[in-house]
Computed example of a mutant assay.
Amino acid sequence: MTPENRNLWIIASIAFVNALSFTILIPILYLYGRQFGLNDFETSLLFSMFSLAQFFATPVIGKLSDRFGRKPLLVISLAGTVIANLWAGAATAAWMLFCARILDGITGGNASVAQAVISDLTDESNRARGFGLFGAAFGLGFVLGPVISLLAQQVSLGAAFYASGAIAFLALILTVLFLPETLERRVRTNIFDLGLGTLVTGLFMPRVGILLIINLLLGTTFTMFTFAFQPYYLEVLGQNSQSLTVLFIVYGTLGVVMQTVGVPYLTQRFKLTRILFLALLVRSLSFVLMPIWPILAYFVIVTVIFSILSSLVQPIISTMISLNAKPEQQGVVLGLNASYLSVSNAIGPVLAGLMVRQTNPTTYGYPLYWAGVCTFLVLSVAIATRRRYAPAT
């Protein structure tokens, strides 16, 4: 195995463990917020505060990783995740939970740094494979994370945060002991320039800005779904958190298969834009179809089809952003991409939270309908502007 391949597998392992830490929380965060007496809208803010903090912090982390190296920033951000999860698990009041989620958001930009490591290690011919491997590792975390969450729930919902913190600590150890520094050419800039200005200027970067806008819009529609998904499944379909966790395991398994087998197979035979358009078409149709009939078997079938192709979206967009950026800009542009996904994660749950009413469970389907319509509109924009961002490869 070449050093480059070995380092790719190391960063994939770190992504996997980091994903475990994150996905342990997905099935329980909504119910954990309700445990503190939060209503649906306040619970949506619990999701949004994390994402808003991540929005501002991620480009800073990406900028600093271009200047000081990938490894130090990975270490700092993972340490923050450990502390934040332990704090959330020990929370005795809602304000403590909010503060812990904000801290986790501030230090939660490590995905963009990990993607920058992949950019450091790959060239244009195998970058899609590198991002596919990263996505597969994250997807595998989506399989095993809910399993660990299911076990932790037998103790308490708060125990899931302790498990998440422990696994983030494992990712921290892997990074410190095994990941070499991959940045060969460091960008020397004003140390006080933390990259916040790029949150605006990045939108106008040739061939990159339009992809950031598309991803921002897609992230907003997707997080409308992710927030409404849990209460719809629990309140409308009458299921429990354990079966919800099992469903996440199924989604994660399908995502791993698509990102390990599907991405290499499809990218060798089709243009990246065509793969993206197909995945977005299926995503938009799935959103609209999900709430039409409140029947469990029907819902599971639609969401399984959705999970198969929707898992292609982020690896493909990340690949196109990386291919369109200069080598010395990889940390910045991938940080911007993660940052705009974070702000979409802040917007989507709030929009969904404003649409739903606890007294009328039928309203939990409204964000799904809107997510489908809006995703189709974004697909139309992506098709109309494809000449502005489509890579030559």
Rank of each mutant, 00 (worst) to 15 (best):
G80C: 07
A128W: 08
T43C: 09
W87Q: 09
L52T: 08
Q115H: 09
D120R: 08
N39M: 02
Y32V: 00
F131M: 14
F36I: 03
P72T: 14
L20W: 00
L46P: 15
K63M: 08
G37S: 12
A93C: 06
A19F: 06
A116F: 03
A90H: 03
G105F: 05
L133V: 12
N18L: 08
L73S: 10
L20A: 04
E124G: 14
L20K: 00
D120L: 07
F131L: 08
L25M: 14
Q35E: 14
R129H: 12
I118E: 10
V82P: 03
A15T: 15
D40F: 02
R101V: 05
I24W: 04
F134M: 15
L29C: 04
V75E: 00
A91M: 04
L31G: 01
K71I: 07
S44T: 13
L74R: 04
L38W: 05
D120Q: 05
F68L: 14
F98K: 11
R70N: 10
G109W: 04
K63W: 01
L97A: 08
A114D: 05
G135S: 15
F134V: 09
A94G: 10
S119I: 07
G80M: 02
G132R: 10
V17N: 08
Q35I: 00
F50H: 11
I61S: 10
S112I: 00
L78E: 08
T43M: 10
F16N: 06
Y32R: 08
L31E: 07
F50L: 08
F36Q: 13
A88I: 11
F47G: 11
R101L: 06
G33H: 06
W95S: 13
F36K: 12
A15F: 02
R129E: 15
A128H: 13
I26T: 06
F22E: 10
L97W: 02
P59Y: 05
F56M: 09
A88P: 00
S125N: 15
Q35T: 03
M96I: 04
D120I: 07
S44L: 12
F68C: 03
A88F: 07
I102S: 09
N18S: 15
I26Y: 03
I26K: 02
S112K: 09
S119W: 03
G105T: 05
T43H: 10
S51K: 02
A53Q: 09
F16H: 01
S112N: 11
D66F: 02
A94T: 13
L46H: 11
I61T: 06
L73A: 09
E124F: 00
L97E: 08
S65T: 08
R34G: 11
S51W: 01
G37F: 01
L133Q: 09
A128C: 07
G108P: 03
A88V: 14
D104L: 02
L52F: 13
N39P: 02
S125Y: 03
T122M: 13
